[in-house]
Computed example of a mutant assay.
Amino acid sequence: MIVRPINVLLDPRNTFMSMANRPTWVAPLTILMLLATLTSTLTFDRLDVAQAVREQFAAQGRTPDPVQIDRGVTLFQNLRGVAALVTLVSFPLAMMLVAFVFWFAFQLAGREMDYGASVSVTMHSMMPWAVASLLSVPVILSRDSITPREAMSGDVLVSSLGFLAPSDAAPAWAALLSSVDLFSLWTAILLVIGYRTAAKASTVTACFVVSFVWLGYVSIKIGWLAL
């Protein structure tokens, strides 16, 4: 139902209870996918590509000349349209994967639940990020440029502890601080409420599974950036 993505933000308990017999997920997925594409497109339009090229060369201990910078900017401009398409295609796949991880985790915890119910809970629990995307739009539009670090960490909208990381902080440390986010916490709360209903799990079990999956995600992200 189209009203569920809104109601889950206002009355999550009753909204998730209404999904018990009739799980739905198309509406929240569509909203999230379109807003993610919008914000990523706006971000790319204002990304300081020249600075991104300089940082990439600096990481290799090199300094780019003007020709190399121009070449990088041109390549980025050519790939900008592809980036939007990649977001549209990859986003639903990523959400389905997240739903599968939660479904599998609750199976390991001894709770029976259909995969479709897990997809429904996951999609609706991600709706705080739709709010984040809407709040990000005016912030992005007000900026003349966005740094590569802001684009990579998603810190255009100051909602995490990422702003505490100094400019020369290690990527892994910056990623850890960025993971402590207001909208992540909101999403986690909705996941606990949703899976407590869908998986008929206790609050303790739901909190444990959600925390375990979140910590696993953060660990993978930090490990990847530390390579």
Rank of each mutant, 00 (worst) to 15 (best):
V3D: 15
P5V: 00
I6R: 02
V8W: 03
L9A: 07
N14M: 04
M17S: 08
S18D: 15
A20K: 15
A20H: 12
N21D: 11
N21R: 12
N21M: 02
R22C: 01
W25T: 15
V26G: 04
A27F: 06
L32R: 14
M33K: 11
M33A: 14
L38G: 00
T39W: 01
T43E: 06
F44R: 11
L47N: 14
D48Y: 09
V49L: 05
E55M: 04
F57H: 08
A58M: 05
G61A: 10
P64H: 08
D65S: 11
P66F: 11
P66H: 13
Q68D: 06
I69T: 02
R71Y: 06
G72S: 05
G72K: 03
T74D: 13
Q77A: 04
L79S: 10
R80F: 00
G81D: 03
G81Q: 03
A84F: 00
L85Y: 03
V86W: 08
T87P: 09
V89M: 14
L93D: 06
M95T: 03
V98G: 10
A99L: 13
F100W: 15
F106I: 00
L108R: 15
A109T: 07
A109F: 11
E112K: 15
M113G: 14
Y115N: 12
G116R: 11
A117S: 15
V121M: 12
H124M: 10
P128Q: 07
P128A: 10
L135M: 03
S136V: 00
V139A: 12
V139D: 08
I140G: 08
S145M: 06
S145G: 04
R149H: 07
A151E: 05
D155W: 03
D155P: 01
D155N: 13
D155S: 14
S159L: 00
S159M: 00
L161I: 01
F163P: 01
A165I: 08
A165G: 10
L177N: 14
S179P: 12
S179D: 04
F183K: 02
S184Y: 07
L185P: 10
L185H: 04
T187G: 01
A188I: 13
I193D: 05
Y195E: 10
A198N: 06
A199E: 09
S202L: 02
S202Y: 01
V204D: 08
A206P: 09
A206L: 07
C207G: 14
S211N: 14
Y217D: 01
Y217R: 08
V218A: 12
S219A: 15
I220V: 15
I220Y: 11
K221Y: 13
A226K: 05
L227P: 09
